[in-house]
Amino acid sequence: MIYLELLWSFIQIGLFSIGGGYAAMPLIQRQVVDLHPWLTMTQFADIMAIAEMTPGPIAINSATFVGIQVGGLPGALVATIGCVLPSCVIVMTLAYVYYRFRGLTMVQGVLAGLRPAVIAMIASAGISLIILSFFGQRELPADLSGVQPIPVLIFCAALVILRKWKVNPIYVMAGAGLISIVVYSAF
C-alpha cells in the first residue's frame, strides 16, 4: 500500500528532523532516495532547489513533491499530513506542559546535545550534493578529472558571496541559475 508507505516515511521525517529547515534534508534523502525508489538523486537535488525558491518549509515542499510523483494529489496530501502529524502531537503536548510549568531545562539539554549531530548530518548531505553538482553522479569517482568546471566556479563564487555579504539565498540561487544559462549558452 503505497499511501501507507508514504505516510509512514514522512511521519519518520517529521518526527526526527529537529532544528528545522536543512535538518530535514538528510532524512528526506534517506527515505525517498536511499530506502525507497521514489526519487533519483538528481530529482532530489531539483526539489531542494525548488524548495529553496518557493515559500514554505523544505519538509512540506518535498512531501508535496514526492507525494505527487508517487501517488498524485492524494499522495501529496498523505505525505504532508504524515510530515506534520508528529509536530502536532509533540508541540501541542509541549505547549500544554509549557503553559503549566514554563521552563524545561532537561528538554533543552537533550536538544542541545542533538545540535552537533544535526550539523554533522547536514554537512554529510551537503557533501552528497557537492559531489552530484561537480561530477554529475552520486558517488565520488575514482578518477577526479571528470570534474565539471562551471558548477565548481559557480559554487565557489556563491559561497564567497554568501559568507561575505550575507545575501539572501534566494537571490544567490537565482543568480547561479541565470549565470549558468548564460555560460552554457555561450559555449
Binding site: D46, M53, G177, S180, Y184
Partner: peptide, 19 residues
Amino acid sequence: MAMTGMLAGVAAVICDVVI
C-alpha cells in the same frame, strides 16, 4: 542549464549554513 547552476547554488547555501 539553470538547474545545473542552481544545484551548485544550493550546495553553496548548505555549505554556508554548515559553516
